[in-house]
Design a protein around this nucleic acid. Structure first.
Lengths: 229, 229
DNA sequence: CCAAAAGTGTTTCACGTACACCCATGC
DNA sequence: GCATGGGTGTACGTGAAACACTTTTGG
């Protein structure tokens, strides 16, 4: 089977920068390529857009196929289309970024990925294609957006302690935050539900757990409220 | 001549939302389509990406071909790729937005555009395809970005009075701004060059002219300065 | 009882906001 | 000389930032 067009067309792909967070680091999910070009090198998960598939749907499908990650926060980042970015032919890639809770996803490599694994953001190997550039833009976007939209919660479990939330902002923004000022500010926003639960399995005083109240946030947003850290 | 591929490929286009500003309104540049589909309807300027052309280069080329606009601030907005967005086939469009000084550009329609013209942002007709959605996103982006990056200057002439700058922010953000506070704030940033020139051809006291000092801003930005209105 | 982290208030300073009058120029 | 917009300073309140000790729990 083949397809013929009057004019030549660039190929179209999607790539995904998947961020996760643990106690120590902001991490990114990479795959090791099984096929040429760049076989054996680490790269962002991604692949070709199928006909009659929206770019976002392509990104979600490729992410699940190659790494097992599904049902996550995902949005478009930027479209990379320098003619030289792929040695084979002109390939235009619609890059996306995703935020996941590390514990929720069993990572497994599949299709044309040899392996898949998490890398600390400061310890990423040289990537195939222009994926280093894409990763940098995604990281910049995350740093910027996390400050004025409540997307950080996507990196945490449903129920979390305030210390985890603070840790998130410290790791993503890469700076220390004063505990009292942080708690004062985030609680005063009124977008957290205080739960009647505390941490378990900690060897010290257990912290109270909270949940992000998305409905409340949406209501407040409509009335002009602006989230800001 | 024709081109054959193993898998079917979506077509790839670029579209441009060009903003301009006059005394009264924020305006957007539209063309009237000469060809089907949507022949006769107003639409964003744009067209097909040629092979071995980056998306930004395509956008600049199409903009010049269809409207005569060239050498302007232009950056990528978002890539629209819902399979249903074009009645012919799956067409993925990389949307861009541009900011121009209205007086610098003689608009002339050409290639497959019957006419080209400026429309006040609040008075735009129904647009072809999903161009209404694209325009809305571009407008939202402009409103957001103008507040934390010094891109508004692209809408003004090289030399401008502070009142023009304030008018810009009032029109884009759609709210009144206090004159004294605005002047205090913008001058205290130290990114404007005070010129030894004043307005001409005004029937009242002439205002001093300023110029945006891009080099100074870049230096300050590197040192952690954040523009914000 | 000791280690570890949770939780809690106050003071200070910078910045945003509100607000009204005199000045320069062209006609 | 009058109409039009240019240009200027101060007072107040809010919110960000700095800062240290007590409490709770598990081991």
């Amino acid at each position: 089977m083949s397809y013929t067009y009057e004019y030549s067309r660039p190929a179209l792909t999607v790539d995904c920068v998947v961020f996760g967070l643990d106690q120590d680091d902001l991490k990114v999910l990479l795959i090791q390529r099984g096929l040429e070009p760049f076989a054996g090198q680490w790269a962002l998960p991604g692949g070709f857009v199928r006909i009659d598939e929206s770019p976002e749907a392509s990104a979600r499908r490729e992410l699940q196929e190659e790494t097992g990650v599904r049902d996550v926060f995902l949005e478009q980042l930027y479209t990379f289309g320098e003619p030289s970015r792929d040695p084979r032919e002109h390939v235009i890639s619609i890059a996306h970024y995703a935020l996941v809770n590390l514990d929720d996803h069993e990572i497994r490599a599949a299709t044309d990925a040899r392996q898949a694994g998490w890398f600390a953001i400061d310890d990423v190997p040289t990537l195939a294609f222009d994926h280093g550039t894409i990763l940098k833009m995604a990281h910049d976007r995350l740093c910027g957006k996390v400050r004025y939209q409540p997307i950080g919660f996507e990196l945490l479990p449903d129920k979390f302690a305030l210390r985890q939330l603070q840790n998130l902002y410290e790791k993503v923004l890469d700076r220390q935050i004063d505990k009292r000022n942080f708690r004062k500010k985030i609680l005063s926003m009124g977008i957290l539900q205080e739960l009647d639960e505390v941490e378990t399995d900690v060897s010290h005083r257990a912290a109270r757990l909270y949940r992000f109240d998305k409905g409340k946030y949406n209501d407040m947003f409509k009335n002009g409220f602006n989230f800001e850290i």
